[in-house]
Amino acid sequence: MTTTDHPGRIPTDGIEAVPGSSKPDPILEVDTMVRQFGGLRAVDVEHLEIQRHWITALIGPNGAGKTTFFNLLTGFDTPNEGAVEFNGEAMPRRISPNKLARQGMVRTFQLTKSLTRLPVIENMKLGVKEQRGERFLPALIKPLWNEQEESIEERADKLLVRFKMDHMRDEFAGTLSGGQRKLLEMARSLMTDPELVMLDEPTAGVNPALTQSLLQHVTGLRDEGMTIIFVEHDMDVVHEIADWVVVMAEGKIIAEGTPDAISKNEAVVDAYLGSHHDSDLTFDDEGDVIRGDEGQPVHDEPDVVHDDEREVAHDDERDVAHDHRADDAHNEDGATT
């Protein structure tokens, strides 16, 4: 797949393919992380280690708790219990996403969060941490931050060229197509100089041509020394780029291993078959799930929280579903509704 491996990237041989297996050099370690919604345990992870410099795929049927798990790891949600170590340092249970981002953990969202009424280049420039001009008083005096701003812009322009988006530089991000937004979000997250990049369904709704270039970028990041975790539905994509696969079902991690091993794992197959009939992961078919045209979800794209909600709604636990809704509303458009 790749030719210019990062020297720190170790092969997967010899790593035990069991849930919670230990890795030689984990960038992220999770211990007994639990997230409950009412009576439902959306996430219940005993132990997980993410190896540095690998691409780790997080897969699982609808409602498995993947996005909730992502939210917990990135501080967008708070676990009922559980501990995370990032780079060997214990993170507090309740930590704000911005603090984690400043420590080098950056994420993208399943529903892209491009800043629609800012030009692409401004989207990019926002990513840089610790900008002098982001403080109130220095902001008033341009000479104090102008030099840094120019170097940021230069870097942003280079990244845009690399992502083949330089021609859209001055367009409002809101005018981009769904796939382009995914690219922009990924490029923007790189502006933060991350160590760990967490991509929530980077290829969902992206057309095949753009998907290929997106995947190349992902492997490119690994080769530059970053660690990547991504949520994915498409097994082909997982096979193509992942070094390691973690499978979740009903909030738990049920399997770990290389892509090849995982597709032969009976527990995984059971989990998928035993789940809802609308499971959109298949091993034989293409398995692509294109949602809406050009990646633009027609309605609210059903994300994992929604899926949980369906299950719960089926169980007639209305109250729980209600809370999900509120939670959901907050996460997706809460800031401004």
């Binding site: 990135t74 967008f76 704000s96 996403p97 911005n98 603090k99 981002a101 400043r102 950056v106 994420r107 993208t108 969202f109 969060k113 491009s114 800043l115 629609t116 009424r117 800012l118 401004e122 420039k125 926002l126 990513g127 941490k129 900008q131 002098r132 001009g133 982001e134 403080r135 109130f136 902001a139 008033l140 341009k142 931050w145 701003e149 979000e185 923007r188 997250s189 502006m191 933060t192 996460n331 800031a335 401004t336």
Partner: peptide, 29 residues
């Protein structure tokens, strides 16, 4: 003066999507 600065950019990013700003390390609050 403020809105042409990076400070203003953070404000506008919060207007567009608070969570995106937080994911990029900005203390939206």
């Amino acid at each position: 003066l403020l809105m042409r600065s990076p400070w203003g950019r953070v404000l506008k990013s919060i207007r567009e999507d608070e969570d995106a700003a937080r994911a990029l390390g900005k203390n939206a609050y």
